[in-house]
């Protein structure tokens, strides 16, 4: 009988919230997903949700001032991957934003909100919480 896999301790990577660090943060997340056995198609979804969450912090969390963003990841007993994206900007719940109008024609179509829509769509579950001075966005992915 195989022992149930225990959740792994959370690994973290903290970097300045700037676009030049986006790829390093995404590679860190992708390496973790690969280690946990997620296939290429699932890793595409994980990368998409993670990029949209990180870019949102990089572009908006600190309103032009310096700040940091942290990616944390851990594997769960239930074949899951949990990713936490943390920043110390003003309180902001991306999941509370209105959905974009995906039916609009070309003339009226706006890109605003599509990134956050992709976070919801690509992750199996997403949750936001404010803890002290931190925004914490948690993304869950289940390995099929």
């Amino acid at each position: 009988m195989r022992a149930a896999r225990k959740p792994t301790a959370m690994e973290r990577l903290r970097r300045p919230a700037r676009m030049e660090f986006l790829h390093e943060l995404l590679e860190f997340i992708d390496a973790g997903a690969k280690r946990l056995g997620f296939d290429e198609s699932a890793r595409g979804r994980i990368r998409l949700a993670s990029e949209e969450a990180l870019v949102n912090v990089i572009l908006h969390a600190y309103a032009g001032a310096d700040g940091e963003v942290e990616a944390g990841l851990s594997g769960g007993e239930d074949r899951s991957l949990r990713i936490e994206i943390r920043d110390r900007g003003a309180a902001f719940d991306p999941l509370a934003e209105a959905e974009p109008d995906l039916e609009a024609g070309l003339a009226d179509r706006k890109i605003g909100g599509v990134g956050i829509f992709f976070i919801r769509e690509a992750a199996d579950r997403a949750a936001y919480r404010r803890e002290g001075e931190e925004n914490i966005l948690t993304l869950y992915f289940i390995r099929t």
């Binding site: 595409g44 990368r47 998409l48 990029e51 949209e52 870019v55 070309l106 003339a107 179509r109 890109i111 599509v114 990134g115 992709f118």
Partner: peptide
């Protein structure tokens, strides 16, 4: 191999200019 909303934004902008 991969596109995110940032890539879609550029393509949307090109589509609007073409129109």
């Amino acid at each position: 191999e991969y596109i995110s909303s940032a890539g879609l934004r550029v393509i949307l902008s090109a589509a609007k200019k073409m129109k």
